[in-house]
Amino acid sequence: MNDSFKRGAAEGVRRMLPLSVGLIPWALVTGVAMRSSGMSAVEATGMNLLVFAGTAQLGTLPLIASGAPLWLIVLTALALNLRFVIFSAAMAPSFEGQSWARRLSSSYLLVDTVFIICAEPMKRSDDPEWRWGCFLGPALWAWLVWQVFGLAGVLGADAIPQGWSLEFMATIALMVMLVPMTQVRAMLVAAVAGGLGAVLLRDMPLRLGVIAGIAIGIAAGFAAEHWVGRARAR
């Protein structure tokens, strides 16, 4: 860890701290939800460590609890995480020249908040060690916050009153992360199209309306990005 790495890590963590507040209720809600779905504390903690993707965890829990077929659970998790394909592609140039081990660990640690705060600063830097520090610092911090408060939700699920409505806090946390992303036109189009699609198709069987909405949002986002690119080229 040279000085350049440390400066990058410090900058990344500084940017991450305000958004960490939104991770806390989301992690708590996810921990409680896993226990409420019938998982043991060990199973819930294992899922938190292995999956490390709150949206996918919350989205698949109703399917797991209802005994849905495995293929549907896997398909739902993949669909809910499709945005990371876009995030990864956008950040890939910043990892040019990095080792395979670093790229692999980055794929596990990449979350929405890290993409929001790191993508642009990493693009602007020509120092690979600074870029690596700028990613790894906030990514590890986000992982730690998620695991600690997720575990708190798992262990304290029985003690949290049902009337607290923590699910609403999780929705607010998601909105806090969504708003900065919608400053990019393609992201805004994707969010609106995907949200409308999911609402209009909510009556589809096996909760496939959510997957359809995600597909619509991704297609709309790619189309918007293509149109914006063509407009700039003129």
Results as ranks from 00 to 15, higher is better:
L174W: 09
G197N: 01
N48T: 03
F168M: 00
M47W: 09
F84D: 11
A159G: 05
L58H: 08
T171Q: 01
I64G: 00
A219W: 12
A92G: 08
T182P: 06
L49W: 13
V114A: 05
R185H: 12
G221T: 11
V176M: 10
L49Y: 10
G133W: 08
A44P: 04
I86D: 09
L201S: 12
S66I: 06
F5I: 03
T76P: 07
L178K: 02
G221V: 12
V51T: 13
S40L: 00
G156W: 00
I214H: 13
W146D: 02
G209P: 05
G209Q: 05
G46F: 02
G217R: 08
G195K: 15
A152E: 07
V114C: 04
R232W: 04
A212R: 04
L208S: 14
V85D: 00
V184S: 04
M177H: 07
R35W: 06
G22S: 03
V184K: 12
L23C: 09
W227V: 11
L151I: 15
V192N: 01
L200H: 06
T76E: 04
A9Q: 15
S165G: 11
N48C: 01
V32H: 01
M181Y: 00
G217L: 00
F115Q: 08
W143T: 10
P180E: 07
L17H: 08
L78K: 14
L49H: 09
G38M: 05
S94I: 10
E43D: 05
W227H: 14
R83S: 01
A191I: 10
R7M: 03
A9H: 15
R234D: 09
I117G: 13
L208K: 08
L200V: 04
G22C: 00
R234C: 06
H226M: 14
A10Y: 12
